[in-house]
Structure formats: structure tokens, C-alpha cells
Design a protein around this nucleic acid. Sequence first.
DNA 1: TATGAATGAGCGTTCATTCAT
DNA 2: AATGAATGAACGCTCATTCAT
Lengths: 220, 220, 220, 220
Amino acid sequence: MSSKGTPSSIVNAAEELFAEQGFAETTVRQITSRANVNLAAINYHFGSKKGLIQAVAEKFITPLINELSNQMDCYVDTDVKPALDDLLEILMRALLIVRSENQNTLPVFMRLLELAYMNNQEELRDFLIGRYKSRLEHFLDCIRDDSAPMEDDEFFWRLHFMLGSMTFTLSNFQTLHSLEKSRFTSKQSETEMEQILHRMIPVLSAGMQARGEKLYFSKI
Amino acid sequence: MSSKGTPSSIVNAAEELFAEQGFAETTVRQITSRANVNLAAINYHFGSKKGLIQAVAEKFITPLINELSNQMDCYVDTDVKPALDDLLEILMRALLIVRSENQNTLPVFMRLLELAYMNNQEELRDFLIGRYKSRLEHFLDCIRDDSAPMEDDEFFWRLHFMLGSMTFTLSNFQTLHSLEKSRFTSKQSETEMEQILHRMIPVLSAGMQARGEKLYFSKI
Amino acid sequence: MSSKGTPSSIVNAAEELFAEQGFAETTVRQITSRANVNLAAINYHFGSKKGLIQAVAEKFITPLINELSNQMDCYVDTDVKPALDDLLEILMRALLIVRSENQNTLPVFMRLLELAYMNNQEELRDFLIGRYKSRLEHFLDCIRDDSAPMEDDEFFWRLHFMLGSMTFTLSNFQTLHSLEKSRFTSKQSETEMEQILHRMIPVLSAGMQARGEKLYFSKI
Amino acid sequence: MSSKGTPSSIVNAAEELFAEQGFAETTVRQITSRANVNLAAINYHFGSKKGLIQAVAEKFITPLINELSNQMDCYVDTDVKPALDDLLEILMRALLIVRSENQNTLPVFMRLLELAYMNNQEELRDFLIGRYKSRLEHFLDCIRDDSAPMEDDEFFWRLHFMLGSMTFTLSNFQTLHSLEKSRFTSKQSETEMEQILHRMIPVLSAGMQARGEKLYFSKI
DNA sequence: TATGAATGAGCGTTCATTCAT
DNA sequence: AATGAATGAACGCTCATTCAT
């Protein structure tokens, strides 16, 4: 299951621990211990803990973006504009494909996105933006084309409302899954991550297509 | 509002630092230093750093729930069922009121919710659930009454999609605000937090009211 | 012998180890171990290892400068200008007094001066210059008054020739002492540090009073 | 001069870094990185970091001693005894010649001498003494012949006062040069290392020829 | 002959907490 | 009630060296 080689063992162990505990809470000693490698190996192969986190990020995002691009190519030679639901399904499908190649570690990827938006993480943010922004633009343009008409800034914020739904739900999937099971024990809900991604599509889609803004509420 | 007393100074300083840096990243030294109190004061007054975090949580959530209850009382003697948009506006309004009483620290509250959903945070989660769950149920029932008809589990997840939008957007407000300003410099966008809360209402509302689910995508 | 209190124990242990091994070669674990205090005590009391080195520096230099000033005050109300030999004797005497208050640790002080002149030690250098430069100026002026007439830059370099003799001899006193004993075993030379300081006076004095410069040698 | 071969590249890189930072402060990674060779190459070719330092030492001292011997041969067939100033000029000249063959790395040589006099460096000291002591004796005898009459031990110490001036001034030349420039900006002093060596001659000479010792100062 | 990978030991520092007063 | 001092544990990281090829 684990690939060959020390760097690969490290990345695999790190993914598990990052998913279980978060980045700051996971120590290099825990990682190297679980990977059965020397304590210094992380610094040797990745330069620093930060470098390892970036390596983990790349391992996820690169195939995700590739898969997204591949799926979008279906539309490139036709006049058909993809519907919002279809675009979101492409996105969810890409996430699931990446997950199938990185057993059970979608939460790590989502935590990475959350991390990138935190203060004091400009470095990671700039790294990701510099590396992947351009490759995402076509996809986002298509999203916008089937969304309700709106200003640039409104689109910016709605995209992040969407992103928030995804990162919160997936990075805390384990907790939410437990909560759901303990509340609705009767139904023996087989809530798997795939199902949750599926549930998200009509909700997010409706959010992007919602028209009109409520009037600003008076100052309080 | 004023900060008479050591415990109060500590809580105020902690709020600021938690908002700026997150909980794990904020040290008790930073807190006591900013509060101009002794290093040992946190352990003395709150038992531990965790105890302080709970104290901060209570300071936010109690007035929030109170405000929410007050607003809901308007409907209690009538047959009028509040519309989803109105319920969300009540929620946003309550958030803004709490904010006005705890200058600029809505992000802390949102980070607290995120924290409560993390693994290894059962203690905080149980604390919040045990303390506030019952007082939220009426509000949530009203939400459900104006949402699209759906199963319990679907409602559970949609609520958390909503929660994700709110926590992600508000806890990372500073970063998102910067990103928006650097992208759309021309418009001199005066994006304030109030405006963002306002923008969220129709989006979240549409999400909860979205009908029909896409067919499950085939296994991959 | 050792003063009371943790900081004092640390400084005493540090002095010994710095003298034996140098600054970089001495670890905080060695220091805290010899001082029988907790490993974290250095950072608690001095902020960092660098802070401890500065504290050691101050403990030496402050009384040295004070002693120097006291001795120089003898000349302040008279018209007598002190002779170069007398000035050097004042200096040596001040060094010995400081040594008598900090048992056997003149080598540490000399190593400190050497350290301050190294690259990448601007911080220490600036610290010392900012703190003590002005208090040394009168003494240096008197030195110059009884030296051979020379330009500013020539005086600057001759002062440092002198400083080099002192730092090299004293910071390596232990090694030199051993070498001397092994070479001249017959004489059972009782070379003590006081004697060496004494030997230096006529040599340094002659150097400062040497007149005329040799012609520049041709380019090679 | 050219750097064909891995060992040669290593030595050249090491010289530069030793001059800039000192021996302990320079890591084998820095050296191999600047030399563009494998990290293990130092241990492979020189056994250890210490072995490399010895190799650097030899590269300097052997030609220095050779040059010194050559110059001294001028006097071998005559009855003329060289004057102290001439001997010092021969020494300075030899240093400059070695420097011209090892671009700008006189400070390294001086640091090497300082290092050899430190505690815990018996190995290096013994290596140098065993290799070069005998070849220096004639030169030192000539020095003594034109110095003031003195006992063996007095001569031993005066030699090291001289050595201290040289090592301190040259190994810290960069710092001293900066200090001088910042103090005497007006004169646009073209202080080069050659000039400093030149300035040293009359000072050191006078020191060696100084007669009479001051009376021992009373115990304090 | 030469190297990329790996290692054990140790580094200075920081942490939340506790102790003695 | 409150605090300055102190602590044990752990942190990420770097070191010169060695190993397997």
C-alpha cells in the first residue's frame, strides 16, 4: 500500500497524521516514527516541516487540477456550455478520483485549503496561487457563466461561501459523521463521503444561481 | 466592555490574539503579556488554557443565543411562520449585535465553532452542546419549516454546509478581504463584514430551499 | 564563592565554560548542568544564549571601566599628563582588579573582545560600542598624548596592534603557559598572569612611541 | 591556482568560508555546496573536517616557510646580520606572496594560528609544531639577535605579543577596515592589507627592542 | 572513485504548567 | 489573591559522519 522509498513513507505518514490532528498539532517526531524513518529524514528530503506540507499539497492538487482539466476538455470543441450542476459534478468527481489515489485523505486536502487562508500563511497561499491559479481560471469562468448575473466582488464572495461549505464539511467529516450516526441511529445511515459530495451539488448550485440581494439591513 | 479585573483583561487580550492567530498558535505568554498580568494568572483564574478558551466561548455564545431567542419571541404569539430569509437575517443581526459588544472579534467566535468540530476536541464540543443545544432547537425547527422538504440526515448536512460557509468566510475574513482588495482595486470596494453577512442570506437561503437531488453518480 | 540565586549560578558556570571552550563550543546544556539549574533557566533569565553572553560581558566590562575611570581621576585636577607607561599600568592594574573579583576569568573577557571583532557579530559589537565607547575616550586621548605623533588612522591601527597582543596572550594564556613550561623546564618559571601583564607594558609602550614609518615596499 | 579536481575545489571553497565565518561556524555542507561537490567528499578525501583544516594549513604554511627560507639565504654567505626591521619586512613580504597565491585568504591563515593556540586543539598544534618548528628556528634566532638582550622566557612572550598583533589585526581585517572607514570617512583612507603589514613593522620592531622592564607592581 | 541517502547525537528554544511565597 | 521563579517535556532543526551501492 505504501509506496517505496523514504520520502514516500514520510508523505503517507504525514497525510494520516495531518488528517487526524491538523498540521500544527502533528510533530515531525510523530511523522518519522510512524514512517519508521530517521528523525532527520524530513529535513533531509523536504528541507523543513513546511516543505513537507507543501509536498503533501502538491501531491493532492496537481492530479486534482489535471483531472479537472481533462473533464473540461470535453466541452472545448463544442458550443455547449456546461451547466452549473455538471461543473460541480466534475469537481466532485475529480475530488473522488484524487481520494481514490490517496486513500481516505480528502480531509487533509481540505485542511490544507483552510490553512492557506489563515493569517501568517502568506507563504503557502502564494505558493498555491502562483502554481495553480491560472489553471483554474477556465473552470471558474464556466462556473460564472451559469451563475446568476452578478458583479465581480459578489462572485468572489459566493465562490468562497461554496469553498467554505466544502472545506468545513470534508475536513471535519469524521466528526460530522459521528454526530450524524449518534443522532439518527435508527436509519443506519450509510453516509459516505461520496454521498456528501453528491448532496452538496444542488445546494451549492442553488446558492450560485440565487438572484437578487436582500436590502441591506439598517445599521445596528 | 470595560476591563476591570484581571480575568476580564485576560479574556479581552485572548480574544484579540485568538482572532489574529488561532488558538494553538497563541501562547499564554502572549496573552498575559498583552493583558499586562502575571504569566500564572491564566492557570490561576481559568485552570488551564482550555478553560480560558471555554470562558471566551461562553462570553460569545450566551448573548448570541439570548439575542436569537429574543428575536424569535416576536413570532411566538402569532400564527405567522417566519420566512427563511427572515430567520437568516435574525441570525446575522444577532451576530452583529454580539460583535458590537465584543469589538471586531466575530472571527474568534467562528474559529471556536471550527475548533469544536475538530478531532480531539470532544471536551469543548460536549461543553457547547450540553450548554446550548436545547436553546437552539426552536430556531432550527423554524429554519427547517421553510426549507425544502427533506429527510433528517439531509437537513443535518445542509445545516453544516451553511455553517461551513459562515465559519470559513468570517474566520478568514481578513485574508479574504485582502485578496478581494488586491484583485478588484478599481472598484474601491468597501467590503465590510456586515456586507458579507448580508450577501450570504440569499445564497444560504437558496441552498436550503433547493429541491431535488441529482442522481447519485456511478461508483468510480 | 558562587553568589546566591539562579542567574548568578548560571553566569558563574558560563564564565568557566566559556574560558575553557569558547562561546560557540559551550552548550546551554553544559552551562545549566554545571550550574545545577533547569535547562530552560538561561532562556528564562537571559532570553537567549546571546543574552547570557552579553550579561557576562557587562559583568566584566562595567567594573573595568569604572576602575579605569577612578584611576584616571588622579590626574584630573593636576597639570601632570600621565606617561604612557603609567597609563598602561593603570590598564593592567584594572584588569587584575576585575580578575580578582571574577576568579581566573580574564581569558573570558579577552575572548569576548575577540568575538566582538568577528564578522557576523555586529550585534555584540554595537552593544559594546554603544555602552562603553564614550567612557573610554578620555583614556585613549591620554594614550595618544604620550605616543609618537601620528595621523588618526595610524593611531587607530596601533591601538589594535596593542589590543591584539593583549587578547591573544591572555585568552590563550593557558596554552602559552604550558608551552613555556615545557620548553624551559629548568627554570621552573613561575609565570603568572600578573607577570605577563607586567612584561607587556614596556613592549606596548615602545610600539606606541615608535617613530617614523618604513617606506612602503614595492608592489609584489 | 586553478582548481582542477575535487580536493582542490574543496580546499578553495573552505578557505573562503573559513575566512568569512571561522572554522567552527563553517559547516561541511556549506563547503561542499560552494565547491559543487558531494557532501561526503570531505570525509572521503580528507577523512574529517579536522583533516580538511590541516590540509588548508599546509597549503598556506609550506610556501610561507619556503619563501622565508629563500629570503634568509641571502644572508647565509655573508657576515652581515640582518636588522630586525629587515627580518620583519621579509616576514611581511612572505605573507604577501603567499596571499597573492591564495587570493585574499591571509585571514584564514591567521585564524588557523589562533585556532592552534586554543585549548582542545593539541592535535593541530602538535601537527604544526612537528612539521614546521625546525624550519623556523633560524629565522627566530636572527630576530633575537637584533632584539634587546633578554632571557629566554621574556623572548618567548614578546614573540607571542608580536604574533597576537598580527593574528588579531589580520584575521579581523575586514571588521577593522570597516570600523576605520566609518570613523575617518574624510580621508578616503586606502587602507589595504599591504599597508597594514607595513605599518606593523616599526611598531613590532620597537617592541622587541624595548629595553628594561618596569618594576613589578605590588600585589593587589 | 564517488555519491545520494540516511543516521544518531545534539543543538537552542518554547511550551503550558506548577511551586514557594 | 496573586506572583516571580522555576520546571519537565517537547519542539523543529542541524551537525559531522557513515553506509550501501
